[in-house]
Amino acid sequence: MTPLLSVRALTKRYGPHIGCADVSFDLWPGEVMGIVGESGSGKSTLLNCMAGHLVCDSGQVIFDTRADGPTDTLTMSEPARRMLSRTDWAFVHQHARDGLHMGVSAGGNVGERLMAVGARNYGDIRDTAIDWLGRVEISETRIDDRPTTFSGGMQQRLQIARNLVTGPRLVFMDEPTGGLDVSVQARLLDLLRGLVRDMGLSAIIVTHDLAVVRLLADRLMVMKDGHVVEAGLTDQVLDDPQHAYTQLLVSSVLQV
């Protein structure tokens, strides 16, 4: 079995400062990987480097493409990479506003990726949009409303629907539950967990919320100052942290 994504010695510097350094790991099909760490530890830099939003300094990000097998996405041509990022990849932003067209209706937002890969039948696009709105628990009657009229949780769910509509195999998520209140977070996590299991998605989730990774992630990487300090199965890392920083992180969680 080939890993879906292999990251090798990925390094990104901001001048003299380290964004992330020498990160390597494999992500297997159907696996959910969590990346945790405090603010400024390089989690988002790593995610953006992998997704091709940032240019990294060295390393490889090898994705198992449908057509050509494992290919380094950092050296592939820009059209091919952008094609990948709207078919097999998805990126869920922390702020739904970054990932949505706020001036375009919910249906249009969901349909955009379909139209971008060549769908030209209005009826089909609309049916798919309705189906996906249903899956993320947004009422069909809201299909022609703009996301500006949606609540934060609905916007985030809409962003997820818009990303998953082309049936991607790998989803990058940057703090998907950030900025939502706990009950909305719980529903969103429930939804995400269901979608990930049903579609057999692989996902990389960046978060500082340990509860999120406990629920969603199979494996965990803990980052500090741009380096991975500990990695392993989620329960193992959270229940028996080895590195001093991980111990601090786990013990800092407020118990209710």
């Binding site: 209706s105 249009g108 955009e112 971008a116 030209r120």
Partner: peptide, 18 residues
């Protein structure tokens, strides 16, 4: 440059839906 014209159809989609 990359012939990514999906957005153009989003405009037409919005027209029809409205």
């Amino acid at each position: 440059a990359l012939e990514e014209y999906g957005l153009m159809h989003v405009k037409l989609y919005e027209d029809i839906s409205r």
